[in-house]
Design a protein around this nucleic acid. Structure first.
Lengths: 89, 89
DNA sequence: TTGATATATGAATATATGTACATATATTTG
DNA sequence: CAAATATATGTACATATATTCATATATCAA
């Protein structure tokens, strides 16, 4: 329950959820790509991504100028589906 | 995504998750019962319950001296299962 | 080597959330 | 009615999270 709260806190944020939702359908994405798609400022997005990465939620790969982020815990995306169902009530 | 974050924020807390997990298996419970089981101080628990109730997550019924809380959005409990699966990685 | 691009980091600040404590309210019981 | 019980509420404070801004670092291209 402890760890559940830890994970939920790490994703309970609009920008973070958007990133997760986006990464769910993509193998990996660069920060720039995410910036454009989420319409989020560079530094802010970087903070969010860095933190989720530190918490094991996102995967990471650096190549040249770019950083590639991916959804490491694929199951996390299912949470979004659960909530989508809740909303239908 | 907006609303997903709203709900996740409302439950991303150890005490709240414990309450949800407990209510999941019970039709309804009083504050006192929850206090004992969650080992949580009265006022603090009340604040948590009141807030989740205000956000539509918990159901509520008052009878005599007691307040009965229930899990209104049953699907929310599924989120806990999703996370349990994540942890297995 | 210089400048541009991509990203990260740190510090400062704003805002939200959690907690404790005192007190209020409503109900029941004697 | 007075005391006891169950719960809620308000306020203050601590702590966590989000956001912004300035700046650092690394890579690439001319």
């Amino acid at each position: 329950m402890d760890e559940a709260a830890y994970i939920l806190k790490a994703i309970a944020n609009e920008t973070r959820l958007k990133a997760i939702e986006r990464l769910r359908h993509e193998e990996e994405m660069t920060v720039s790509e995410l910036m454009k798609e989420l319409n989020c400022e560079q530094s802010l997005l970087s903070h969010h991504l860095t933190d989720m990465r530190a918490k094991g939620i996102l995967g990471f790969r650096k190549e040249g100028k770019n950083s590639y982020y991916s959804l490491r815990l694929k199951e996390i995306a299912n949470i979004l589906d659960c909530i989508a169902k809740c909303k239908c009530n």
